[in-house]
Amino acid sequence: MTAPVAAHPHVFIDYSATVLCQRDKIVGVRIAWTFDEMYSASLYHDYTSQPKGPLTRADIARLHDEAFKDSADEHYFTDIVFNGKSVPVNQATAFTASYDGRKMTYRFTVPLALSPATGANTLDIDSFDTEFYIDFELAKRGAAAVADGGQLRLACAPTPLTKDTTTFGPLTTHIVRCHFSGTA
């Protein structure tokens, strides 16, 4: 990734998160990244075989292997904090990509196994590049969603938060913050 001082962001991503629940457990977070048009065009140009049109299965596999997989080194630029404690993000499953003719979107799942205790819990999710080469912005619409969160009474909303960058100093970003109040 590139850095901030010289290189203020050159890749812009709108991200959103869906918390995946099963009964009284959180089993994962589905993240979506939508790239800006210019970077999307570069990705499409570099990793697909055809000049236009939707991605083929082979394109998606190539994007995964050549343009996504290695971001594991960066923990997929995703931070998950459960009740104030950082949850390691070392795995991304069910990767897929789509292209609408202008913008490229990646989707992937971070598997989790969180069993909230009864009472108040919080879960923070965000994508962020500490070097600020990529500017991750929380999507203006549909940034936070919950799948099957009824039993946990989960409610997620965008929340401003200041995070540290390697050389750019603190930056205010928007994260997805979820509160949930019960397992009963």
Binding site: M1, T2, V11, A67, F68, D70, S71, D73, E74, H75, D79, V81, S86, P88, V89, D124, F128, T130, Y133, I134, P160, L161, T162, K163, D164, P170, T172
Partner: peptide
């Protein structure tokens, strides 16, 4: 940019209020 050989530590998370 999505291929960096040197792994970096996970983000420290929040540092302050906005």
């Amino acid at each position: 940019p999505f291929h960096k050989s040197a792994a970096r530590p996970p983000s420290e998370g929040a540092v302050a209020d906005p």
